[in-house]
């Protein structure tokens, strides 16, 4: 068992374990911080998969942006005295049936399909290739993505802003 395999097992364990904590923790703050470890674990797996650009982007956007936003959401929607931080679960039985069906289906698909295990190309950095693709083949989606982000920014500000009382 090489060091590479050990790294995979450790990262997979961290990712799945903290994902379970995200779902099962009664305290919403614990969920948010467990999500941090899930994102870092997935970023580590991207590094193992030779996806350097995506790994850095994962850390920057998910950990630095989305997670901070979620923690702000937790703080803004949890009043210290009235609304408890803890949240309850319900419908566990039907949820497990539905989840089991999804899991069984996907498990069967992965097992039955013949995956290409031979091709594992060693890459020397993907950032240049991704940049070239962004400026040639994917130029239109790239520009549309920027418009989507702009609209989301404006929409979030307008929705979350407190409405001014008209006098």
């Amino acid at each position: 068992m090489s060091l590479f395999d050990v790294a995979f097992y450790v990262l997979a364990f961290i990712t799945v374990g903290s994902a379970i904590v995200v779902v099962s923790s009664r305290n919403i703050i614990y969920s948010a911080f467990a999500l941090l470890f899930t994102f870092f674990g997935v970023a580590g797996l991207y590094v193992l998969l030779n996806a350097d650009f995506i790994a850095v982007t994962q850390v920057l956007i998910y950990v630095g942006g989305i997670l901070v936003l979620i923690i702000f959401g937790v703080m803004l929607t949890t009043k210290v005295f009235d609304v408890p931080v803890k949240t309850e679960t319900l419908h566990v039985g039907p949820a497990i049936v539905v989840t089991g069906a999804i899991m069984g289906t996907l498990f069967g698909v992965i097992l039955k399909t013949k995956w290409f295990d031979i091709l594992n190309v060693q890459w020397d950095g993907t950032t240049k290739k991704i940049g070239e693709r962004l400026m040639t083949d994917f130029l239109l989606p790239f520009e549309v993505a920027s418009v989507v982000l702009l609209v989301a920014l404006l929409g979030a500000v307008i929705i979350a802003r407190r409405e001014r009382v008209k006098s």
Partner: peptide, 29 residues
Amino acid sequence: IPLSWYLFLSLILFTIGVLGVLIRRNAIV
């Protein structure tokens, strides 16, 4: 590591996410 292990890991994460959406009642969770 074969490709299917990454797919299984992805499957487990996805299932945990679906389970969380179904059983948790807090919108932020």
